[in-house]
Nucleic acid binder design. Structure first.
Lengths: 350, 350
DNA sequence: GATTAGCACTCGATTAAAGGGAGTGCTAAC
DNA sequence: GTTAGCACTCCCTTTAATCGAGTGCTAATC
């Protein structure tokens, strides 16, 4: 156990026991309960004194006089940083996760969806994720093909292996040859560029170079832009929101409403997840550490998935502050590792 | 007003007033309330007698002695079939809906998503929809194209205008010529067939005909099957589930949990929606008319969207039985019309 | 000085009783 | 057939009483 200048060994043990217990039972923990579970063999009165100290220091608090203690956000923070004991996942659990994710997924978007789903069912909390951010990625290939008399399909592939496509409609049947020329032209022009910085040539120039009709060019460029749209506009991935209802802290309808409405606001959630970018490892935002008032009783655990050094997106778990941190830690860590290696597999070390 | 052998004109007026009022207030309605709102000029005692009759006939009921009356499911049914007065949407409302849906959407799946979203925000209930059912559609075009060293994209277009695609991964870089040949071959083989009945030629035969490597053929066929997968496996569209929390009938947490869990079970919901297929116009399933016990306090309003004679999918609204039927009616009717015409526009009368 | 037993005290949670009020059904008069 | 009047019912809210888990403090003990 890590030594701390403020807390004695015993205080830390008490704090850990209390938090472990509270996470299990969701009930305030009294001194007697701790003294029983605590092999140290001190009486409840001693524990009481220690607990009074811990409360003074802000690690725990009382819902009201004559109730036991519950951890404060500061307490959880200390627990997460120093006290909690990580149990590795069981073999059968690992197998379950692998079976769910290591199916034949060949596209990163789908992979993240799938992972998000598994996270929520596996932990019993809500899972949220950002799809791969295209802005920093490199555009690898553009193709334009006709799908019927009036529509063409624009396909964009990024270096990160994300495949997006968009149907665009034009008022006439495009000539196959022209389409091919336009497709090649666009590919040559933007291939290899960082997506966020792509500037398309003026329509007029494209027309001159390719001989394609203006209407077609405008439509295709528009479709391509849609494919490459920034993360701000792409859909957020969410799973298992209703799981939250199974936890006693969400037995309060107004609160449920509040949180659900917050979750409906994609903008806010994306910002939350985005702020986790550039942070290494797992990022815990516990209770009041969240800026948003509505999240004061929630903890958001996030981490980044990436291909090599390039961060692609974020995923994480949302649950009550009284969350099974140790289990969340091992689950997220494992899935993060798995996602990253799956992405590499999809891209085949390219 | 339609004459009914069981109910006198006055009883119907009373029933209508009662239901209109109850839909607005969510409170049991007493005889005095009705006699005041009712210009007919009969006393509350008379209304009381009539109400006693209506209760005997099963149209209304009392939550308990000494409370007012609330409509029974039978009452709502009669209301929907005979009593409710449809108010056409206001011009500004119509404008709002058109603005939201008539954006440049060129693909039916996206259109349905968008419509579902508008329905839920516009009505304040939950919206659910089935994406276009491919099983009965005709496959119009198949294309296979390479997107990077190890992956190819399979694109399928149906006569209904739905475009699906799937990334498949193979262990080597495919030869462009071979890909083109395979693409053309598959297109020739399945183009024009009803999707549900497509049988692909044996791999061996394809290999002989196209000279493509077995691994590539297997992967592409698999991807194509994914594109054409049955509705059973395609994702359900849902929006505004949390809207339900705004209605007093969902002030009961166990019930909320129950309903939300039901909604999480895609299989059940799909079946519900599917059963609405082949029914003309708007289909109301009121309270206990729903087979599922959990839905006993909900009403599901569904309708079909189609291209010409071919039904593509279903969409609808889920809300409490005490739902604003008249508003739901006009909204859904209008959006249905709009979707159908938008689909035609996308397909441009083909 | 640290620990512990003992005990009065606090305060939420649960249960019980009482009062208020909305709405009914019935009866008798119109 | 309609209506005024009235006793009655039953939910809802408020108030009071009781219970009990857990605390803080004090004084004795190690």
């Amino acid at each position: 156990m890590i030594w701390n200048e403020e807390l004695s060994e015993r205080k830390m043990q008490i704090l850990r026991t209390l938090i472990d217990d509270y996470i299990k039972t969701a009930q305030p923990i009294g001194s007697r309960t701790i003294s029983r579970k605590h092999a140290l063999g001190v009486s409840s009165a001693t524990i009481r004194n220690e607990m009074a100290d811990l409360e003074d220091m802000g690690y725990i608090s009382q819902p009201h006089t004559s109730a036991g203690r519950i951890p404060s956000d500061k307490g959880y923070r200390f627990y997460v940083d120093h006290l909690m004991q990580i149990h590795e996942l069981q073999h059968d659990e690992i197998k379950k996760i692998r079976d769910a994710i290591e199916v034949k997924i060949n596209e990163i978007n789908t992979l993240v969806h799938c992972a998000s789903d598994i996270i929520s069912t596996f932990t019993g909390y809500a899972s949220i994720a950002l799809p791969p951010n295209l802005n920093k990625a490199i555009l690898k290939s553009v193709q334009v093909l006709s799908i019927d008399e009036k529509r063409v399909l624009v396909v964009a592939v990024t270096s990160g292996g994300v495949v997006n496509n968009q149907v665009v409609r034009i008022g006439f049947e495009p000539d196959q040859g022209t389409l091919k020329i336009l497709s090649n032209y666009l590919h040559e022009k933007v291939n290899g560029l960082i997506i966020g910085r792509i500037k398309f040539p003026p329509v007029d120039e494209i027309r001159k170079e390719t001989g394609a009709p203006v209407e077609l060019i405008i439509a295709v460029i528009e479709g391509l832009k849609q494919c490459l749209q920034d993360i701000d506009e792409s859909a957020l991935i969410m799973n298992g929101i209703t799981n939250l209802l199974n936890h006693p802290e969400f037995n309060d309808l107004p609160k449920v409403k509040e949180v659900f409405e917050l979750l409906n606001d994609q903008g806010i959630i994306k910002e939350l997840l985005n702020s986790a970018m550039n942070k290494e490892g797992l990022n815990f935002q516990i209770g009041s550490e969240n800026e948003n008032e509505v999240m004061r009783d929630c903890t958001l655990v996030t981490t980044v998935y990436s291909v090599g050094e390039t961060e692609l997106g974020t995923f994480g778990i949302l649950g009550p502050t009284r969350m099974s941190y140790s289990r969340v830690f091992s689950t997220i860590s494992y899935i993060r590792k798995l996602i990253n290696s799956e992405i590499l597999r999809i891209l085949n070390d390219e």
